[in-house]
Design a binder for these strands. Structure first.
Lengths: 361, 361
DNA sequence: TTGAAAGCGATACCAG
DNA sequence: CTGGTATCGCTTTCAA
């Protein structure tokens, strides 16, 4: 038995910092158990522990050994070290979902839940990474440190082509943007917010309206939604060849802002408004009603998202219902791209939008 | 130069899988650059690279060398490998926030954003871990694999004492529950949801009401909020010695459910209702109004969360305003516990609640 | 069927 | 001031 570099000598393993019999604070700093500890307790090698705990099918381990290992792991409350594992494996199963402003609305959060659930079923580790206040490339670098196998950007952080490149060079197999803007190089899925503005305006045009306001929320983080919705509204107006006019209407989400807008409503000469979403619609509609504007007689109002609350208003709020891709379908797509990263970036339209007429239009 | 176990022989480093000049798919599988690649390009050792990129103050590196290293890192788009780093360091800076049902409401999500932002300023990596569908200990084990330095459980996942133990044994310095229930062993911060029910009922009692309904939403995941709110309501009624009666009212978040409840309203003989939150209040209030119930004459209605939308109703909705701890304060607390994990589990009341009277009570 | 050992990438000692 | 090297925990050949 010549000098083996491993297992140097008796001093157990960790040369515990001064095992002198001093009085220590009650809470003993127990070292975190490793697979080596499990191996020692079970009286087998680390390799065997790994085989057993991972149910490796390539090797056959006797049932008594398996049991010993499992019991030892149980007793020590052993939990494998994800970092060590992925370091060795050369890749992770992390799907990173950057978030900045936590998106509001049951639609969005329901979608998020579904996506997480579906990805976990496919054995990915879903990690939401709060990136509020990071700019594009900074954020990309931070994400890349975790070596995610895929990044699904919900479009709240402006992902740049360089950012995508950073992620891909760090090993990400799939970079997916899910939002209004397409990013060069990203294996991209696209939710085209323009659809929403388009369907709203189409509906208003059908109802005979020609001077249409489009609410632009002033809250930070919402521009990436509102800008394309406005663009879609404009496009629909132009395509209709009715000569319809589109008027952008900045509006903060406060009673004062809504009251201010309502006060100068008559001067605007609008006969309809697409209010960005149902919540802004409710706010504006109340202000208009308080100002004596007849809805839908004088002004038609339409929101978006089809919230339950809109149905409770009088008149009931017309809306644009958004059919988001199911989280399950998106998860499957991510999985496919991860398994076969060779393909060209794809563009999918994953959102349907259609107007739902109630009473306010 | 005797046989060194390292650096075996010329074949560069990675024995690239068949570097034969076959035609490969256009996308070349570039290996992810490591600090060794940076070192080679800069003509220095890996140690030097590490010193430069981490601005290690213990050693002094010449400015030209620093520049060379930085340029090499830039050129290769080098991003450090978080797993390798934390493996070596023996700990991470990950603060794990488990999420299940993404919490609804601007209050909650605003708080979450603030917390994330504040923790990142303290140099933690904030990771939200989607845990929908995992049970307590399963979840704890999954979280522990990431070796987070702290876990802040928002209370959506039932964290058990065993779960806390697992996390602590895996190296978590701080396990913090932020929610209604206290968990044994957790260094715990507590948001006492009972406050909310209590303040609502106090307010209704002051207004002379004695038979008070308390709405219990039927949506999964909300019980952990609704149960303590009901308990708080009961406690407040008992404490008041008015002999007031508390009546639990199951209600799903649908128009049908609300209409059903409203239809049998008279039979219930209630003169007030605490509707869990503003959204449920809006739903129920509309149904009651459609049924001809006078608000607040016949029945007083109070919600919670102080949403803007409640102010738009007629009558304007009374509510319980919740003052959540600021994310910044919670972040500071987490940081303190991480730095000095010795202390006993603490219990903090981090939530204030007070009724805001508008017109519906 | 089990064990020894190499090595993933980054860091921090200790020598030079 | 810079470089060699042991090490973190785990998986996976290769040998026995």
């Amino acid at each position: 038995m010549s000098q083996l570099p491993e297992e140097p000598a008796p001093p157990a393993r960790r040369p515990s910092p001064q095992p002198s019999p001093q009085t220590f604070p009650a809470r003993v700093e127990r070292p975190v158990p490793t697979s080596a500890d499990v191996a020692r307790l079970a009286g087998v090698s680390r390799a065997t522990v790994s085989y057993v705990l991972n149910n490796t099918s390539a090797v056959r381990i006797s049932e008594p050994t398996r049991r010993k290992v499992r019991e030892a792991a149980e007793e020590l409350a052993y939990v494998p070290h994800a970092a060590a594992r992925s370091l060795r494996a050369g890749h992770t199963r992390i799907v990173l979902l950057p978030t900045a402003h936590v998106p509001v609305g049951p639609l969005y959060s329901g979608f998020l839940n579904e996506l997480q659930w579906a990805l976990r079923r496919l054995d990915y580790t879903v990690v939401q990474y709060g990136s509020l206040g990071l700019d594009g490339d900074e954020a990309a670098r931070a994400w890349a440190e975790l070596r995610p196998v895929a990044v699904v950007s919900l479009g709240e952080i402006a992902l740049t082509p360089q950012g995508v490149e950073i992620l891909k060079r760090s090993g990400a197999k799939a970079v997916v943007t899910l939002g209004p803007q397409e990013v060069e190089g990203a294996h991209a899925l696209v939710l085209d917010q323009r659809e929403i503005g388009g369907r709203a305006v189409d509906h208003l045009l059908e109802r005979g309206r020609r001077r249409i306001g489009v609410v632009l929320p002033q809250e930070p983080g919402l521009e990436i939604f509102s800008a394309p919705r406005l663009a879609g509204a404009r496009a629909a107006a132009a395509a209709s060849a009715t000569g319809a006019h589109i008027e952008p209407l900045p509006l903060a989400y406060t009673e004062e802002s809504a009251a201010g807008l309502a006060a100068r409503w008559d001067g605007l000469g609008l006969d309809a408004v697409f209010a960005f979403n149902d919540e802004h619609a409710m706010l504006l509609m109340r202000a208009l009603q308080d100002e004596g504007v007849d809805i839908p007689g004088g002004t038609a109002v339409i929101g978006a998202d089809d919230l339950l609350l809109g149905r409770l208003l009088r008149p009931r709020l017309s809306t644009v219902r958004i059919d988001l891709v199911t989280g399950q379908r998106l998860a499957a797509l991510v999985d496919r791209v991860v398994r076969d990263p060779g393909g060209e970036p794809e563009r999918h339209d994953l959102m349907g939008a259609r107007a739902v007429r109630r009473e306010s239009t």
